[in-house]
């Protein structure tokens, strides 16, 4: 069995050249991101062509569409549906590259400005939920690793329960307890931070369960790692060791999970925005799916992919700062 040397496992402090070290990977990250966007655009193009029936009809609401002949003709012209498939494909790529997702038949508006106006609310929700999930997961992991095996099992059980809570159900329970029972928070979105509390908690708790599982594993590893032993030998307090060394070590895989967590939060936003009546991408998507508003659905998919790429490039950079080994 191979074992990395002690120095391999020790996260070193960010060096002075940290920012410079990020330059090249960042460039590559952006390049990779463009590739992914292209692939997602291609995938959506192919999948939409798989919708049975007239593609013009598909753009205007699918099988139940009540589109007029004029509207169908306009859609054919707008998307070049009478052109060869390759031309259609290139047209679509060109439009997406210029952030032109076409017109929503159901909302009677340009898709891109609509989605951009909905993006902020969803991102705010996702970022806050991610932050809260981290706090909860770390607290849970730290608390439970103190209790040895029993503590770890208990912590793990809590996390599995949290991860298994369906958000739509959790949201209703939170509303019953904190809105109707205690009267602390409003049950629907209202302006101001107080309206964000329940939606954020709903999104964060199950995610904290997932993160907690990952963090505990690496925290246990870290607490038994040689660098922690040597820190103990130097007489550092257990609290200091946990906060200074172990958490940073343990956070690395969790930070790397950010891209995945972001996807999880976007999925969750569909449910949470519906329950708490918050405007946002998720609710827009659900409405669009219900009426088969294909341009909006494609727009949400592309915007989510774009946001995902930004998040991963950033978290990649954060990982490098936390754990210089990954720059090797």
């Amino acid at each position: 069995m191979t074992s990395p040397s002690a120095s391999d496992l020790r996260p070193t402090a960010p060096r002075a050249g940290a920012v410079g070290r990020l330059g090249r990977p960042l460039l590559i990250g952006v390049g990779g991101g463009v590739f992914v966007l292209w692939a997602v655009a291609t995938l959506t193009f192919v999948l939409v062509r798989l919708i049975p029936g007239d593609p013009a009809q598909a753009v205007l609401g699918g099988p139940g569409s009540q589109a007029s002949a004029e509207a169908l003709a306009a859609a054919r012209a707008e998307y070049g549906l009478d052109q060869p498939i390759l031309v259609q494909y290139l047209m679509q790529l060109g439009r997406i590259a210029t952030l032109d997702f076409g017109t929503s038949y159901s909302l009677r508006t340009e898709v891109a400005p609509l989605l951009l106006s909905q993006l902020g609310g969803t991102l705010l929700l996702a970022v806050l939920a991610l932050a809260l999930a981290w706090v909860v997961a770390l607290a849970l992991a730290l608390a439970s690793t103190r209790g040895g095996r029993v503590g770890a099992s208990l912590g793990s059980a809590l996390e599995v329960v949290a991860a298994g809570l369906p958000q739509f159900w959790l949201a209703t329970v939170l509303i019953l307890v904190f809105s109707l029972g205690l009267g602390w928070f409003p049950p629907i979105s209202v302006p101001g931070p107080i309206g964000l509390v329940l939606p954020v908690v709903t999104l964060a708790l199950p995610l904290a369960g997932f993160l907690g599982q990952t963090i505990r594993e690496s925290l246990l590893d870290a607490l038994e790692a040689p660098f922690v032993l040597s820190a103990r030998a130097r007489g550092e307090g257990e609290r200091g060791i946990r906060l200074r060394h172990a958490i940073r070590h343990a956070a690395v895989p969790g930070v790397a999970l950010s891209g995945w967590a972001f996807g999880y939060l976007i999925s969750g936003a569909v449910v949470v925005e519906t329950i708490f009546a918050r405007p946002g991408l998720g609710r827009t998507l659900l409405n669009a799916v219900t009426v088969r508003d294909v341009p909006v659905v494609i727009g949400v998919v592309m915007i989510t992919a774009l946001a995902y790429i930004v998040v991963t490039v950033v978290s990649d950079a954060a990982t490098r700062l936390l754990d210089p080994r990954s720059a090797a």
Partner: peptide, 17 residues
């Protein structure tokens, strides 16, 4: 306002929102 979820809608009424 548009509150699609029936449980949230009733809760919002009870809470006076």
């Amino acid at each position: 306002r548009f509150i699609p979820d029936s449980a949230s809608r009733y809760a919002a009424l009870q809470a006076g929102e």
